[in-house]
């Protein structure tokens, strides 16, 4: 078998194992299924109705923000899952087997991708129930989902680095949220950054989360004239900018996570 075939083959076996675990841990179930449903409902009813924008639906605008926030939050599992498997000696057991050295990371990121698919499916269904609609072609909509998942996948590798650097599983979640919270909220997920103070506005404009959110809104036809994207380049060219961000994240963080993994396990 080729090296890549082996890495993916073993990765898929391990991804299945990770998913089985996810479905059996009530906490993880909560974060990947129940939280997304709750967020969708809360945002749709509480904020969607509280903020009245004449003539347009704020709910449509909001829900893409909820989608993005959910997949970003889900990426925490990548780091904490790795840290836990290393701490419990499970990774050592795997490493004593003739598997590809990349398969543990590949398996982890694949299962987290599958996890995101699950979250998105339940959010889309919930969203449709509360009146959210995609106002674009099937092709554009599909591209929107692919972009969302591709971004989540790239982000998994970033959080893998956090998990492999911090190592203590209890600390990983907190450390991850310190990165993820600003990423999620200093952005256009729920409001237009136009009104942010100057520094925050610049950060928000160049935040990859903003580019992805804007791109998905465009692809779903969920943009809202009451919330203009702003003039910054990444928001005016959101699809291209998102694509570039994803490529850069993968190019930087796949090798980084791999070398971190080597260091973390060889002790």
């Amino acid at each position: 078998m080729s090296a890549v075939g082996l890495a993916v083959g073993d990765g898929v076996v391990l991804a299945k194992r990770n998913l089985t675990r996810t479905l059996r841990v009530p906490d993880l179930m909560m974060s990947s299924l129940i939280m997304p449903i709750m967020s969708t409902l809360l945002f749709a009813y509480i904020f969607g109705s509280a903020i009245q924008v004449p003539g347009v639906s704020y709910t449509e605008f909001l829900l893409v923000g909820v989608f993005v926030q959910t997949v970003v939050f889900n990426s925490v599992i990548t780091g904490s899952g790795l840290a836990e498997d290393i701490q419990k000696g499970i990774v050592d057991r795997f490493r004593s087997l003739p598997i590809s050295p990349y398969s543990v990371l590949i398996g982890r990121t694949i299962s987290d991708l599958a996890n995101n698919v699950l979250s998105i499916v339940v959010m889309v269904v919930t969203g449709l129930l509360v009146g959210w609609r995609i106002d674009s072609s099937a092709g554009e909509a599909a591209a929107g989902f692919v972009l969302l998942l591709a971004f989540a996948y790239a982000l998994s590798w970033v959080l893998a680095v956090v998990g492999l650097s911090v190592r203590a599983p209890e600390v990983v979640t907190n450390a991850s949220f310190m990165i993820i919270m600003p990423l999620c909220f200093i952005a256009n997920t729920y409001v237009s950054p136009e009104g942010f103070p100057a520094v925050l506005r610049v950060i928000a404009e160049w935040n990859p989360v903003s580019a992805v959110t804007q791109a998905v809104r465009e692809l779903f036809g969920n943009t809202n004239p009451a919330f203009p994207p702003g003039d910054a380049w990444p928001l005016q060219n959101a699809i291209l900018a998102s694509f570039l961000w994803i490529v850069v994240m993968l190019v930087v963080f796949v090798p980084f996570a791999t070398s971190r993994y080597r260091k973390a396990v060889a002790r």
Partner: peptide, 28 residues
């Protein structure tokens, strides 16, 4: 080689069968 380390490295959330089957799969 076959290794069994000092502290049992088993997956708590999988069944006994699933644990062994997983290892078999990873041995291809």
């Amino acid at each position: 080689i076959g290794l069994s380390g000092q502290y049992a490295a088993v997956d708590e959330l999988l069944t006994g069968y699933e644990n062994l089957e997983l290892i078999g799969r990873l041995y291809h």
